Computed example of a mutant assay.
Amino acid sequence: MKVGECCKRAVVAIASNASAGEAARLMRREHVGFLIVHQDADELQKPVGVLTDRDLVLAVMARDVNPDAVTVGDVMTRQPLIANDGDDLGDMLQGMRLTGVRRVPVVDGRGALIGVIAIDDAIDIITGLMCDIAGSIKSEQKHEWRARLS
């Protein structure tokens, strides 16, 4: 399965020159704890970093920094793991495990932001596949019992 087939297309992104306070307010408004960061005025929104609610707590709140005095670019995680829409889901999950991240921006062939995939999404997919496997086994057992009774 390809990453582009299972990523969420609803993405919340922010420009790197926005303030940390703006980022926090955006997270609250959109009910997310993860923003994909792009350069200001980049129509393709090519990811240059990511910002989590944890980043804001550790870099801003815990240090008593005025959130409107620092930019997203100052506190974001740079060079995030990025998946291409044509990447294999299994390979991307291995990359997530190796880098210790739970969410990954997804880009198209031009590098344009098109989605995000999270561990939760992968668990949903894998759970669905496991249900299909279990259903296949149960179906096979029913067919065997019917064949024996005939």
Score class of each variant (00 low, 15 high):
4 G>K: 06
13 A>R: 06
56 L>H: 05
7 C>A: 06
15 A>L: 04
8 K>I: 04
34 F>K: 05
65 V>A: 05
9 R>I: 09
66 N>W: 01
26 L>W: 00
61 M>I: 14
68 D>G: 03
19 S>N: 08
74 D>W: 06
64 D>Y: 10
10 A>M: 10
57 V>R: 14
18 A>R: 09
41 A>M: 13
6 C>K: 14
54 R>L: 08
60 V>K: 06
54 R>C: 04
19 S>L: 08
61 M>L: 15
31 H>I: 00
40 D>V: 07
54 R>Q: 05
77 T>V: 11
61 M>N: 15
62 A>P: 08
10 A>T: 09
53 D>C: 04
3 V>Q: 10
15 A>H: 09
40 D>W: 12
76 M>E: 03
64 D>P: 11
7 C>K: 09
20 A>C: 04
4 G>E: 08
74 D>E: 13
37 V>R: 10
26 L>G: 00
26 L>F: 02
36 I>E: 06
22 E>V: 11
10 A>L: 12
14 I>K: 09
69 A>W: 08
58 L>H: 08
27 M>I: 02
81 L>N: 04
71 T>C: 01
54 R>N: 05
31 H>G: 10
32 V>G: 07
40 D>Q: 14
40 D>K: 11
61 M>H: 14
82 I>T: 12
82 I>C: 09
68 D>Q: 07
12 V>T: 14
49 G>D: 07
34 F>N: 00
82 I>L: 09
46 K>S: 13
28 R>F: 15
84 N>D: 10
32 V>A: 06
28 R>N: 15
59 A>P: 10
24 A>K: 02
17 N>R: 08
77 T>G: 13
23 A>L: 03
83 A>I: 05
5 E>P: 08
21 G>I: 03
52 T>R: 02
77 T>D: 09
25 R>M: 12
64 D>F: 07
84 N>S: 11
3 V>D: 07
76 M>I: 00
63 R>D: 07
70 V>A: 06
52 T>Y: 02
83 A>Y: 07
47 P>K: 03
42 D>T: 05
26 L>M: 11
19 S>T: 11
78 R>S: 03
40 D>P: 15
25 R>Q: 12
81 L>H: 07
43 E>H: 10
59 A>R: 15
51 L>T: 01
15 A>E: 14
49 G>V: 02
62 A>S: 13
76 M>R: 00
34 F>E: 02
30 E>K: 11
23 A>I: 02
52 T>N: 07
5 E>V: 03
28 R>T: 13
66 N>E: 10
54 R>W: 02
29 R>I: 10
35 L>S: 12
84 N>G: 09
50 V>F: 12
66 N>D: 14
78 R>W: 00
56 L>G: 02
33 G>V: 00
35 L>Q: 06
43 E>T: 11
38 H>C: 11
13 A>L: 05
69 A>E: 11
33 G>S: 10
37 V>Y: 05
84 N>R: 11
51 L>P: 04
13 A>Q: 08
30 E>M: 10
66 N>V: 04
15 A>Q: 12
84 N>H: 12
56 L>D: 01
